[in-house]
């Protein structure tokens, strides 16, 4: 019995020791991702500050930051961000609704899949920017054609994600629904939708990424406001700091909206028993 005591002590020590690194990890892990861009930015800042480069074509972070502040002070920034966000929001909304509905129909109903899917896949093969001239002719140069272009970009990944996810829902789980005599709508609501949700969230995030891509294309074509306009304006007036400012804001907004989807979906995906959970990714 006496010999037990040291053994117990020994085992408790590593346990205490293990707590410290895990606490460190919790804060260190997100910081790890910032390390690389921060080092590069500071390095460039240093180079320009020492006068080893004039930083005219590649302005240092401080100058980009100053440009953002200037734009924010004049109220321009809010106007441009609002315009871009509004376009992405509307285009994303239309694209998601259309992609989800059509994807669900094609996934659930094999006749619809045979009828619709080949056409959709053929349309998907067209580089989406090829639609631009047509959309401008059809819908005009203003908002409608821009939103349509974004919606097209968002539509395909969502459609494909929903349809593909429904097709690979485990037959065994569907059978459980059948044994409890679920009706078609109940089967969709109680079995298929929850089963495809993880894949759906991924397709939404991919769709959103494409939405941000296409808003730039749309705004480069002809716009008087929006972050894409800031890019074009910066190029035409030779203001690289403004271009970089717009790029930085794109990065922030893109990351932020993606994170919003992730956060919104998280409560519905807590049940997952997946690789990503274990690694904390």
């Amino acid at each position: 019995m006496i010999s037990d005591a040291p053994v117990l002590q020994q085992t408790s020590e590593p346990a205490e020791g293990a707590a410290a690194p895990s606490r460190l990890n919790r804060y260190a892990r997100p910081l790890l991702g910032i390390l690389l861009p921060l080092t590069l930015a500071l390095g460039w800042e240093f180079l320009v500050w020492r006068g080893w480069s004039n930083g005219r074509l590649v302005p240092p972070p401080s100058r980009v930051f100053a440009t953002i502040i200037d734009l924010a002070r004049s109220g321009e920034l809010v106007r441009h961000i609002a315009a871009t966000l509004g376009r992405v929001g509307l285009g994303f909304g239309f694209g998601v609704v259309a992609g989800t509905l059509l994807g669900a129909i094609s996934g659930y109903w094999s006749l619809a899949r045979r009828l619709v899917d080949p056409t959709v896949q053929a349309l998907r093969a067209i580089p989406s920017l090829a639609w631009v001239p047509l959309f401008i002719l059809w819908l005009g140069i203003f908002e409608t054609s821009k939103i349509a272009l974004i919606a097209v970009g968002v539509f395909f990944p969502v459609y494909l994600g929903v349809m593909g996810a429904i097709l690979i829902v485990d037959r065994k789980i569907v059978e459980v629904g059948r044994t409890f005599r679920l009706s078609g709508p109940a089967m969709i609501r109680r079995i298929l939708l929850p089963a495809v949700l993880p894949a759906y969230v991924v397709s939404l995030r991919v769709g959103l990424g494409l939405g941000w891509m296409f808003v730039v294309a749309a705004e480069l074509i002809g716009a008087s406001e929006g972050l894409g306009y800031l890019l074009l304006d910066g190029q035409q007036l030779g203001k690289p700091a403004q271009i970089l400012a717009a790029i930085v804001i794109f990065a922030i907004l893109g990351k932020l909206t993606d994170w919003l989807i992730e956060i919104a979906a998280a409560p519905f995906l807590r049940w997952q028993d997946a690789f990503g959970r274990a690694t904390g990714a």
Partner: peptide, 10 residues
């Protein structure tokens, strides 16, 4: 069934 076939999201 042979497998429990529980719905993982419930």
């Amino acid at each position: 069934f042979q497998e429990p076939r529980l719905l993982p999201w419930l």
